[in-house]
Design a protein around this nucleic acid. Sequence first.
DNA 1: CCTACCGATCGGTAGG
DNA 2: CCTACCGATCGGTAGG
Lengths: 226, 226
Amino acid sequence: MDVREETLRQATRLFAAKGFDGTSLKDIADVVGVRKPSLLYHFSSKDELRRSVIDALLERWNAVLPRLLMAAASGEDRFASLMRETVRFFTQDPDRARLLLREILDRPDDLAARLETHVQPWVTVIADYIRKGQEAGEVHADLDPEAYILQVVNLVVSGIAIGASLDRGMLPPSAVDEPADRHARELIRIARISLFTPEALARIAGGSETPKATSHDGAEASRTSP
Amino acid sequence: MDVREETLRQATRLFAAKGFDGTSLKDIADVVGVRKPSLLYHFSSKDELRRSVIDALLERWNAVLPRLLMAAASGEDRFASLMRETVRFFTQDPDRARLLLREILDRPDDLAARLETHVQPWVTVIADYIRKGQEAGEVHADLDPEAYILQVVNLVVSGIAIGASLDRGMLPPSAVDEPADRHARELIRIARISLFTPEALARIAGGSETPKATSHDGAEASRTSP
DNA sequence: CCTACCGATCGGTAGG
DNA sequence: CCTACCGATCGGTAGG
């Protein structure tokens, strides 16, 4: 049991659940199973532990995203796979979404600076694909590519972060059965239909009966370029 | 200068900016201009102050929402006015959005219970309007009404809460000029196009040149009922 | 609404 | 990785 690794794991959990200020070093030490000063041997301060937790999260994201864009370059539908994998990345471990959301509330400048390095290049790449799709008439002409990406990322991250919590408060009880799937499905529907033109959508599947029958399902926005 | 009122105002600001655990009673007392024990005369504990802050927020929301739904029942476009006013409610004071987001991260059950009383009835009303729109073929048949409303509310609240913070991190510098308007516009476009069918949208304005020339701009989803 | 004060807990250090 | 300990700050109370 690597103490450093276990500390990162538990700190992630606790920071996501109760926030940085709501979590004491003792809280973390207790669940890791060591004394508080031992944490400060591995991480020179509470703040360095916080930075390490965020770093670990962004590194995992950075290890996943490029692979996604590459894989999607092949026959598969780029939009669908990108959305599916992004949603999966955060549903797999909702702490990731909660942590990101808390961090941007608590230290907007810090996180913005980090994202600048890690995700801005990918936004540019995807925005260019979208513009190609607009020229081809497959993406809504009045769509604002960068703003669209921002809103969809926001939708996915905060949708998963607050997740089922809002269900209980907003939805009538009858609607709160298998909420995770419902919301993920509606989320993808919104992102998809607000991206592609009706013509492009019709061309893809002729409705929704055979969405996987064509090899280029929904890929029109991006197939024109590497 | 009412100390109680000013305390509520400053506590709202500080809780929204730094979180409940990140704000001390002394922080609040300092900006209000009194000593710490004086706050505890008006609010018997820090937690009661928190509840009062949230109450004030939900009361304002509850004072605005019904008026909106009524006003929209007249000649005006219900969807457009509902979206516009909801966006305005939160952009007017982004602390509202930040506070709600923090609260649902920190105390999901508490806030869910509060929302159950305050907003669940409205969700049911709006969802029924949407279903009427679906029967009339004006709203996408595969749309999930409750899930759609949840996602749109989520989009508005968290979009405004994190606001311009994410711009700097995700968008190339050239795109960060007048971001607030851009994002609000794209947000509304996404919500609108993922609600109405292409046929309904075409019937409304024939494109986007004369969106205000007709008296029932985008109202198809809801005009069939009180 | 104030001064004075409380025990508890905070992040962090010394020294081994 | 531990014990022992530090000053600072926390929410809250007593008493006026």
